[in-house]
Design a protein around this nucleic acid. Structure first.
Lengths: 110, 110
DNA sequence: TGATGATATGTCAGATGCGACATAGTGTCA
DNA sequence: TGACACTATGTCGCATCTGACATATCATCA
């Protein structure tokens, strides 16, 4: 639904604050996007914490560097499934997941 | 990845306990499936709490009765995206989500 | 400056998920 | 028993997501 707007939104992404301040998103769409952005952000954090390059992570996940980049950028073409699978593959636990989701309205939880 | 086994697994689903007891699942696959099953279960709970039929919910979500049934059954053909979008559309909050995920290893959190 | 390593962006063919439809199963009335 | 309402299952054409690849951008070093 309106990919262009959403993409622009996600391009700015978590850097600028919570997603709901943008135009025309229903509350549940906003919640969903915020969730994705929080996970995207966290994926990058975890990868960097492990000192992996996107290429190395891609190999580990049997994906590709470009997909990792898109995941981390919150590109609309990446699904929650892929994000969460990836995080689990990076060793995330349910407890971790819960923590991230709970914090996902705070713009700069880094 | 081995849809048949996974489907059989999910057919029994949360009724029989946590998913990881079945064959040949990597820990992260197991985590992922448990997460899906927990959300599936919760979707049904919420729908029933609202006294909606699958048809009514389908209309509300602009989906179809069969997809709702598959969601609630944890069918492998439904994505986390759809599940979570649906829950958000049913008014779930991040707090709700967190609660469900945190409880998702307990077999009978109903 | 150029070269090198890392990340970002665009595109595409093939894989997977989607709503829709048909139909089968299940429970509950009379 | 049949009729009805609800849910489950199977299939299908279309849409979206995926990994892969090419290429662009960016940062750092010499």
């Amino acid at each position: 639904m309106n990919k262009a707007k959403r993409k622009q939104l996600e391009r700015r992404g978590w850097k600028v604050g919570s997603a709901s301040e943008f135009l025309g998103l229903s509350p549940e769409e906003a919640r969903f996007i915020e969730l994705k952005l929080a996970l995207s952000h966290w994926l990058r954090e975890r990868r960097e914490a492990y000192k992996l390059t996107q290429i190395e992570l891609a190999q580990q996940l049997r994906s590709s560097q470009s997909r990792i980049a898109k995941m981390e950028a919150g590109d609309p073409s990446v699904s929650l499934d892929l994000l969460i699978r990836s995080l689990f593959s990076l060793g995330a636990t349910k407890r971790d997941l819960v923590r991230v989701i709970a914090a996902s309205n705070r713009p700069h939880a880094a």
